[in-house]
């Protein structure tokens, strides 16, 4: 049996199929402004017996394809257990929100916390800031890495941080150091949420922001914990959905 999971996030859509317990296909697309159209295109021609949707666009997909859905909390928890079976803490930093999930030894979610108020502390924040500084989001982490010292950015709100960045640039501060300051602001927020919900043990770090080398390195330093990143980290939610589809999903004709 082939089961599929589709994670319709605010920035990107990932779709994964699982055959005999292994990932057999990965497809990715930008969400854009037509998530359902994009999702439809993404699964076009894909072979599967069952499919389960997660992510913020899941309910639209459910109506469109008459399938079941699960929240991204449950999907990320299941995905993390697949990649790192013994792990009890999950940190996910996606495009629109960030979350920390605590699991028990059987992999069940026992507590979670989400930051979903605004773009603060998310991938979107880094993306907008990279643009303000004239960097590409793909290399933003490397730019932060080569800075000579840490710089402190106090505003976490995307709007206020943007004006803070503008005034730092006007003051003649080094753009790499400003980039590092912005990364540290995201990290500070993630670490305090992580410490509050699951303060001990290795952490599975998922979502697009886990591709950022500076964030991963500093996260390990700041928490003094082992940081485990599934490869690629952004498919974790879709993998979780596919696995749950296999375990108890709805049959699709």
């Amino acid at each position: 049996m082939i089961s599929a999971g589709i994670d319709i996030g605010s920035r990107s859509i990932e779709c994964v199929t699982i055959k005999n317990g292994d990932i057999s296909e990965i497809r990715k697309a930008d969400t854009g402004f037509d998530p359902i159209g994009q999702a439809k295109q993404l699964i076009n021609g894909l072979k599967f017996d069952r499919i389960l949707a997660t992510g913020y666009g899941r309910n639209l997909f459910e109506i469109e394809h008459n399938t079941a859905t699960i929240t991204e909390i449950k999907a990320h928890a299941r995905g993390a257990v697949h990649f790192f079976p013994k792990v009890l803490s999950v940190l996910d930093i996606g495009g629109q929100d960030s979350k920390v999930i605590k699991l028990n030894d059987s992999g069940k979610v026992i507590q979670f916390e989400m930051n979903d108020r605004c773009a603060a502390g998310t991938g979107k924040f880094l993306e907008i800031m990279a643009k303000t500084l004239g960097f590409s989001i793909d290399t933003f982490g490397n730019e932060a890495m080569i800075a000579k010292k840490d710089l402190s950015i106090s505003s976490m709100c995307t709007v206020f941080a943007e004006s803070e960045v503008t005034s730092l640039v006007a003051k003649g501060e080094n753009p790499n150091e400003i980039a590092r300051g912005l990364h540290l602001a995201v990290l500070k927020r993630a670490v305090s949420m992580l410490n509050r919900v699951c303060p001990k043990g290795p952490v599975v770090f998922t979502g697009g922001v886990a591709n950022n080398p500076f964030i991963v390195e500093r996260l390990a330093q700041m928490t003094q914990r082992e940081i485990l990143v599934p490869q690629p980290p952004e498919i974790n939610g879709a993998v979780g959905a596919a696995l749950i589809a296999m375990e108890n999903g709805k049959q699709i004709k």
């Binding site: 929240t71 909390i73 069940k108 989400m114 979903d116 108020r117």
Partner: peptide, 16 residues
């Protein structure tokens, strides 16, 4: 304004 965000949390809570 936060209805959909609350829905995610509440659904995830009920999944627990």
């Amino acid at each position: 304004s936060d209805t959909e965000q609350l829905r995610v949390r509440i659904e995830a809570f009920l999944e627990m």
